[in-house]
Amino acid sequence: MILPAVIYVLYLAFYPAVDAVYQSFHTLHGGLTLYNYDFVNSIFGKSPIYNTFVVTASALALQFAFALILASLLSKPFKGRAAFSALFLIPFGVATIVTGVIFHNIFSTYGGYANSFLRVIGMHPVNWTGSYITSLFVLILADSWKNTPIVTLILLAGMTSISPNLYNQAMVDGAGTFQRFFRITLPNLKGFIAIALMIRGVSEFNIFAMALLLYPYQLLTTMTYALYDTINAHPAYAGGTILLAFVLIFAAIIMTYRGKYGRGY
């Protein structure tokens, strides 16, 4: 009974992945070659790799910072928590491309709402798409708006699994809010942080739709898409293989981290 699902996944996910790697070392005429990689390198250089790392790291940092605060809020009882916990999930349901369109309108250099707001409070408008730092900021802000809820849900599950007795004990011993957070909450969350890092990190490497709309520089995904061509897909196979390699390395690192520290929950 499990076989149909497993065969399905193996046939449609693993087979094409292996095929892409295999094809990336071949040309249209079938000879074994590194030409595809040279071709990709000559057009795009190393910058897509660098950009992908920068985007992944900064988006993860922002999402985890927000999610930790949100999860701590939601782990405490307060009036209106039910309404708030429905509200904070809304971005999870908003389509990725819709989020991209909205942030595109907020941060366009001409006719954007961010610049409108800056003018109202008497500051100079910013050319958001003009520099590396500002376009990175816009991309990770949009991405975090959409994806913080999922990180929050995972961390919240971790926080509710920590025994309240630990906190009470610490308070009796005179530990302050920050001390309790760094000494109790964070160490006990390690396993859940690893899971959230895994889920979000892998998707962050694959950030695509938003980057097409908001980010004028090349990432590994947008590079692969730019190379894609139904006549000769071999350079695109090379792009896809590079992306796959980085995702697998990232996953292996997180798995090792989890194996080391993530036990005991």
């Binding site: 497993v6 996944v9 449609l12 094409p16 892409a20 490497f205 695509f208 139904t230 196979y237 796959l244």
Partner: peptide
Amino acid sequence: LIIGVLFFSTMIPSITIAIPISETFL
């Protein structure tokens, strides 16, 4: 083990496998 294999499959980038799949579907 089976769940691990399934989870692993979700980590393969869509765009990497979309290209060979598009050739097969054509």
